[in-house]
Structure formats: structure tokens, C-alpha cells
């Protein structure tokens, strides 16, 4: 009896809990989940967007059991990451950041490109600001290592307003004015970006390698070469480690 109950407890919340779902249709298990800033697949507003080589592809999820190709367009050979936010799709690429309008969800429309030095660059957005990390090193060996903050209140004209030198910036996440930036072997840094013109370092967390990070109110999840680390995000200046699932080297 106990076992059966346990099974229900395990199974039910997975798919029923709203989590970070974006739509609230009457499906049994509605909505999309949440990926990190390095994502090349993203579900937003009933569509699956994905990057394949130089293309941005849009699949309709009208029948979510059978995605249907709705649109294909060129975004450049170097596009690497997708981040949907508030009706727009932000595409990180080695040459710059592109903004697409999703007013017509099945036909992303290019609004602008913020060009920068060739570099790898995931992007996250909160409010009127986009946060882009540029990193050098293979395969982006010509790049620089920095965080750029862009004012995107005009989506057709993103403007650089500040930047900060980083060690080896990778994936990032932003929530409520706090930006978490992974820095590979240098760990992760929590930044106060409530004033995006004047970013402040809150604290560096150097214990674990950081590749990408997802913020949820229950847990700040960071993945890297050391494994998956979860922190209680209540106090970004003093993150409490909750657990780790370590990487175990294979013989």
C-alpha cells in the first residue's frame, strides 16, 4: 500500500505541477518546461523552436504528440542559443544577438541584430534588458570574455549600455534583478543588476565548474563538469548548497 502511494506521489507532481508553464490550456499536463540559456530547443506559446545548422525552425505543437514543421528560415551558420521572452525570441550567435518577433508564433520575424566581435554568446532577458555573455576559447578562440548588458526597450535597436570583464562566461540566468553567470572552472558569480548601468558583484561561488544555470524559486540549478549543484536561491549573496549529483569519471 505504501509503495503504491509513493508511486503516485512521485508520478503526479512531475507533470501536473505548473512549474514554469507558459500557457494554461486545458491539457492534462499543460505548458512548457524551462531550459537553460544554452538551449537550442525551446517550447514557447505552443510552438517548438529549434536551431539546426544555419536555420531556425518552427514546429507547431497544435498536436503536441506530432510536431509539424510550420516555418524554416535562415539565421546564420553560427546561431547557437534560443531564449524566448515576452513575445520575442532571442538568438545568440557567434556574430551577434538577433531579436525575432513572435507576434505570429509560426512565423518569427527578424527585428534586429546586435553585432559584436566573434564570440560565443548565450543571452537571457528580463524587462528591458538583455544580458549576453561573450567568451573566447575553443571553438570561439577569437572572442573576448565579457558580459554585455543591452537596452532592448526598442527591439529594433538594441543598445549596449555596459559591460564587465569575466573569467570564462558561459550560460546565465536572471531573476528579479539578480544575474547568475557561469564561469566554467571559475564557478559562478551572482550579480546585482537592479541598476543595469551599474552592475555589482554580490558573490562568487567557486566550488563547482559552471556551464549553465536555471533559476526556479525552489532551486538554482547549475550544471558543469563537476555535476549538478542545487542552491537555495533565497539569498543570492549567500547561496546555500542543497545537493549535488556528482560527475563520476569513467575508467
Amino acid at each position: 500500500m505504501k509503495k503504491i502511494h509513493l508511486l503516485f506521489i512521485i508520478m503526479l507532481p512531475f507533470l501536473v505541477a505548473p512549474g514554469c508553464s507558459e500557457d494554461s490550456s486545458s491539457e492534462v499536463m499543460p505548458g512548457a518546461g524551462l531550459g537553460g540559456s544554452m538551449a537550442q530547443f525551446t517550447v514557447y506559446n505552443g510552438q517548438l523552436y529549434l536551431l539546426q545548422s544555419s536555420e531556425l525552425r518552427t514546429y507547431s505543437l497544435e498536436n503536441p504528440a506530432a510536431p509539424q514543421l510550420a516555418n524554416t528560415q535562415q539565421v546564420g551558420i553560427d546561431a547557437e542559443t534560443l531564449f524566448p521572452y515576452s513575445g520575442n525570441l532571442y538568438v545568440g550567435s557567434q556574430g551577434g544577438m538577433h531579436i525575432y518577433s513572435l507576434d505570429n508564433p509560426q512565423q518569427p520575424q527578424h527585428l534586429s541584430t546586435f553585432q559584436h566581435i566573434t564570440s560565443c554568446d548565450p543571452v537571457v532577458v528580463e524587462g528591458n534588458f538583455a544580458y549576453v555573455t561573450l567568451r573566447s576559447g575553443s571553438p570561439c578562440r577569437f572572442g573576448v570574455n565579457e558580459l554585455n548588458v543591452l537596452n532592448i526597450s526598442d527591439k529594433t535597436m538594441p543598445q549596449l549600455i555596459s559591460s564587465m570583464v569575466m573569467n570564462s562566461p558561459q550560460g546565465l540566468a536572471v531573476n528579479n534583478g539578480i544575474l547568475y553567470v557561469c564561469n566554467a572552472e571559475y564557478g559562478m558569480v551572482a550579480l546585482d543588476v537592479t541598476n543595469p548601468f551599474n552592475i555589482k558583484i554580490l558573490k562568487e561561488y567557486k566550488d563547482f565548474d559552471g556551464y549553465d544555470v536555471i533559476f526556479t524559486p525552489r532551486s538554482l540549478m547549475m550544471i558543469g563538469k563537476d555535476g549538478l549543484v542545487q542552491y537555495n536561491p533565497a539569498d543570492p549573496a549567500k547561496l546555500q548548497q542543497l545537493s549535488i549529483i556528482p560527475v563520476v569519471p569513467v575508467e
Binding site: I10, P13, F14, L15, V16, A17, P18, G19, C20, S21, G31, A32, G33, L34, G35, G36, M38, A39, Y211, D212, I214, T216, S219, M221, I223, G224, K225, G227, L228, Q230, I245, P246, V247, V248, P249, V250
Partner: peptide, 29 residues
């Protein structure tokens, strides 16, 4: 075990960790 983890994804209490080029660890989180 995790060996060469890649991207992560979460939905509700389910956490997915990609093992690069091999598949996905499904985790009750």
C-alpha cells in the same frame, strides 16, 4: 552516474540532465 553532462531542463518536479550524445538522466527533483 553523470559522466559528461550537457544541458539541463526542468518541468514541474522533473529534472532532465543530458548526457552528451547518449541520452537523458531523468530525476525526481
Amino acid at each position: 552516474s553523470l559522466h559528461d553532462p550537457g544541458r539541463i531542463y526542468t518541468k514541474g518536479t522533473l529534472l532532465i540532465i543530458n548526457e552528451r550524445f547518449k541520452g537523458f538522466h531523468l530525476i525526481d527533483n
